[in-house]
Amino acid sequence: MIKVVIADDEALVRAGLRGLLDPAPDLEVVAEAEDGRAAVEAAMRYRPDVLLMDIRMPGLDGLRALEQVAGLERPPKVIMLTTFDLDDYVHRALRAGAAGFLLKDTPPTELTAAIRTVAAGNAMLAPTVTKRLITAFTERHPERARRAREKLSALTDRERGVINAIAQGLSNAEIGKELMMSEATVKSHVSRSLAKLGLSNRVQAAILARDANEL
């Protein structure tokens, strides 16, 4: 069972999201939160697998709450919710450790699929969407590129190849075909690379590779 916490300042939105998730046999909404502070408290108390969190909330907003949640010993996977496509805050959210983001009008089947994908430890965005978002939000900056290349230097050539493939929007299966390795080996390289880089998910790794201007 995948435990989910819903954080949004609008009761109607929370009720709508719960209504979409409750029928799923493998998803359980364990708590709701009306602001960022309550979301952090719910994450600590209920230990959810996934936290659906609105970006704009009064008091402690979603971005600052995300930073606090990311610092927990066993942080949940965080999916940020937004009203507008390519929201100005999305870039900051991805860099802070969010697994990705969803529009509030996302179809029910896509919402539940995204939660399952994130709970399994993968990026919640489809590869093509991931590539579009990263391209849109990653600014080319010489100093940032230098720092990114320095950080990536800790990886082996094989691991670096895997990270660059992630940044191109490839799935594990596609990376395996591209680099001629099994999907299990790809997963191992991804996990080891994230640990070396001090990153929490594939989206952050893809942004780092694009910061390095390697693609």
Results as ranks from 00 to 15, higher is better:
Asp85Gln: 12
Arg95Gln: 14
Asp88Tyr: 14
Ala145Pro: 01
Asn164Lys: 11
Ile79Gln: 09
Leu197Ile: 10
Val29Phe: 05
Met53His: 01
His91Cys: 04
Ala120Asp: 14
Met181Leu: 14
Leu63Gln: 02
Val4Cys: 13
Met57Asn: 06
Leu208Lys: 02
Ile175Tyr: 01
Met124Leu: 15
Pro48Leu: 06
Pro142Arg: 09
Leu199Pro: 10
Thr185Leu: 07
Arg144Glu: 09
Val69His: 02
Arg140Asp: 13
Ala93Ser: 13
Gly198Leu: 11
Leu20Asn: 02
Thr138Asn: 05
Val203Ile: 15
Val40Thr: 06
Asp88Cys: 01
Met181Cys: 11
Ser153Gln: 14
Leu12Asn: 12
Glu73Trp: 04
Ala206Ser: 12
Arg74Phe: 06
Asn172Val: 08
Val30His: 10
Val162Tyr: 06
Arg64Asn: 09
Arg47Asp: 04
Arg149His: 13
Pro58Arg: 00
Arg95Val: 01
Leu152Arg: 10
Gly121Ser: 03
Ala113Thr: 13
Val190Arg: 05
Leu60Trp: 00
Ala126Glu: 15
Thr128His: 15
Ala114Arg: 11
Val5Phe: 09
Thr82Gly: 08
Leu170Asp: 01
Ser182Gly: 15
Ala205Asn: 02
Gly121Thr: 05
Asn164Asp: 13
Ala38Gly: 05
Val29Trp: 05
Arg14Val: 00
Arg116Cys: 07
Ala114Met: 10
Ser193Thr: 06
Met181Glu: 06
Ala7Asp: 10
Leu194Asn: 06
Arg146Pro: 01
Val118Thr: 14
Pro76Val: 14
Glu28Leu: 14
Ile6Arg: 00
Leu52Tyr: 04
Pro48Cys: 10
Ala113Pro: 03
Ala114Asp: 11
Tyr89Leu: 08
Ile166His: 01
Gly198Gln: 06
Val186Met: 05
Asp211Ile: 01
Leu51Ser: 01
Pro23Ser: 05
Phe101Cys: 13
Gly36His: 00
